[in-house]
Design a protein around this nucleic acid. Structure first.
Length: 581
RNA sequence: GGCCCCUUAGCUCAACUGGAUAGAGCGGCGGACUUCUAAUCCGCAGGUUGAGGGUUCGAGUCCUUCAGGGGCCGCCA
């Protein structure tokens, strides 16, 4: 149930009536008639812009339409007041029974309250993390992981059929570098002195991999030429790296549905097939690119390459898919990979990438538009940098021991719940400051705590009520006399709860899970506010001594709040806590 | 040189994709504990939404010019 769409439907019905009565011309476009909460609650519970939107096409004054429409809306039992304001808004105030009904509805549907069919079962593929299998995940990957995972959950909650996917870049030159680095650690494991030169990965995390390799093959690779061991060491190393990455993700509670290997594209002919498809559309040609301006590569010289005509889809220059030496660029398998996603029947694709991949957006969108003939939308969400702090001081990232930067270190330090919530307290395209000390503070300043505390407070009330012998099962609360919830402060909380389904839709439509986190903060704030008003006005306390019926009604409201908090946290992948001690 | 993102209160950030008088937290000032947990709440102060121009009933939001910050710019991913 979504009250806002319910009332919008009512508005549309009344507009149809007006049309039938000749008060409005027939066939007006009503797509942008909206019903929203007004920015200022003093204006009412909801406002519609219908009169203003229709005034021009109807050739009437906004207020003229508004007066008639407001009169008709007032006839509905759910509307207690409908009046015209400002340039032609109609402000609606809804009857208390409507808000009481929302509370009941939450208790009846539980965590599914707010679920919507908006996605209409569309198949959506969310690709995220997709870090190179050359080392442990770092904090930046953590942000992408949390964002992508929450977005996937959000889309699921809003009626989409979601696949969580990770693309393993195991086909490029960087995995050869990995293999050589592991080989060095292998030599080291055999007691040899080694030097990590430019173009190798010196990280300690490869030491155990070198040892494991020794364990596996003994001295078989010692003193052997590279082409004898490279392939097998590469396989071995990638497997170890992916084990590590999966473990890192598991630590954060991220579980992928599908890992897609770049390497698996080679030898299947899919890359060739994809490019032939594009060639058939006249989008592939042999050519020479202009040198990039501003930056002057010393070794630049014009070379003929195979190019994709991405400029036809709004890109700045055409992009190479085959290097001058005949091998693929990284872009070629990426195109094939996205073509594979299209062929798997997704209705929409989402890629979550780090902001440093911004230059990649236009060309990938161009490729997907070309391959799907514009049928399959690709949204690319870029996650900005994470800046680590401790006690307010910037935390210098250093690979030397003592200063940690990996996902694992952060999660082990502050926990998965805290990491996830904090990562979602910023828009994806805004930089994020992550203070390792502050996120553990138990104060209002820390939104994780603040929201969790609200949930715990409700649980505390439930515990006490049970001790007092009150039935606080959801079914009992739903059946309580909710008409007793008549105080303005209580209705305000119920109104906030009523916004939840609408917020889910907006967040899902915009692909912005951070909206969930902000909403939960607001909802928690409403609850804390009501709680404290119980200090001055005892009648507002949830637990009413000697009055089980009223207690049940009030507890129903508290419980409904907790259900929505818990449902929202579930989308973010955070576990609600029942007590804070 | 070009492209993308960002610029909102002293600080950190929202603002429901074009709605009414731009909102929170922190910091500052002043209040509320015999309590269902004061780990919280209430009030006050704080703004030319980086600058200019445009589109319209209406702009933080869309278009445009400019300034500042970040990212990217063939054979790395």
């Amino acid at each position: 149930m979504n009250l806002f769409t319910d009332i919008r439907t009512l508005v549309l019905e009344k507009l149809a009536e007006m049309e039938a009565e000749g008060a409005l011309p027939a066939g007006l476009e009503r797509g942008n008639v909206s019903v929203e909460p007004p920015r200022d609650p003093a204006h009412g519970d909801m406002a519609t812009n219908a009169a203003m939107v229709l005034a021009r096409p109807a050739g009437k004054k906004p207020r003229e339409i508004a007066e008639v429409l407001a009169g008709k809306l007032g006839e509905d039992a759910r509307i207690s007041v409908a009046d015209v304001a400002g340039p032609g808004f109609i402000n609606l105030r809804l009857a208390p029974s409507v808000w009481q009904g929302v509370v009941k509805s939450v208790l009846e549907t539980g965590r599914d309250f707010g679920r919507t069919a908006m996605g209409r079962g569309q198949k959506v593929n969310v690709e995220y993390v997709s870090a190179n299998p050359t080392g442990p995940l770092h904090v930046g990957h953590a942000r992408g992981a949390v964002f992508g995972d929450a977005l996937a959950s959000l889309l699921d909650f809003s009626g989409h059929e979601v696949t969580r996917e990770y693309y393993i870049n195991d086909g490029g030159a960087q995995v050869d570098v990995l293999a050589r680095s592991v080989y060095l650690r292998y030599l080291e494991a055999h007691g040899q002195e080694v030097a990590f030169e430019e173009g190798t990965y010196p990280g300690d995390y490869l030491i155990p991999v070198g040892e494991a390799l020794k364990e596996k093959v003994g001295d078989a690779y010692l003193g052997q030429p590279e082409d004898m061991w490279l392939g097998e060491v590469r396989e071995f190393a990638i497997e170890k790296m992916m084990e590590m990455i999966r473990a890192d993700l598991a630590l954060l509670g991220v579980e992928m549905d599908h890992f897609f290997s770049e390497k698996s594209l080679y030898g299947t002919g899919l890359i060739e097939e994809t490019l032939e498809l594009l060639r058939g559309k006249g989008l592939i040609y042999e050519g020479v690119l202009e040198p990039p301006k501003g930056k002057k590569p010393e070794d630049w010289e014009p070379r003929e390459q195979t190019l994709f005509k991405s400029t036809k889809f709004g890109d700045d220059v055409d992009r190479p898919v085959r290097k001058s030496d005949g091998s693929w660029t990284y872009f070629a398998p990426d195109i094939a990979y996205h073509y594979d996603k299209i062929r798997r029947g997704y209705d929409a694709l989402i890629d979550v990438l780090g902001a440093d991949h911004g230059g990649y957006v236009k060309r990938m969108k161009a490729a997907v538009a070309a391959l799907s003939d514009g049928r399959v939308p690709l949204d690319i969400k870029l996650t900005q940098l994470v800046r680590l702090f401790r006690d307010g001081a910037p935390f210098k990232m250093s690979k030397r021991a003592g200063t940690f930067v990996t996902l694992r270190d952060v999660v082990e330090q502050v926990g998965a719940d805290v990491t996830r919530f904090v990562m979602l307290t910023r828009k994806n395209d805004a930089p994020l400051d992550f203070d390792l000390s502050k996120v553990l503070e138990q104060s209002r300043e820390n939104p994780v705590f603040y929201v969790q505390y609200a949930h715990a407070r409700v649980c505390s009330v439930l515990r006490r009520a049970r001790e007092a012998g009150i039935d606080v099962e959801d079914a009992a609360l739903a059946a309580a006399d909710l008409g007793r919830l008549d105080h303005e402060a209580e209705l305000a909380l119920a109104r906030k709860i009523a916004e939840w389904p609408r917020l889910v839709e907006i967040a899902a439509r915009t692909h912005e899970p951070h909206r969930i986190a902000f909403y939960l903060y607001d909802l928690a704030s409403e609850l804390h506010g009501l709680w404290n008003r119980g200090n001055e006005i005892p009648a507002l306390r949830f637990l009413q001594e000697g009055d089980p019926a009223t207690s049940q009604a009030k507890i129903a409201l508290a419980r409904a709040t907790a259900v929505v908090i818990s449902s929202g946290l579930a989308i973010l992948g955070v576990t609600p806590v029942e007590e804070m001690r």
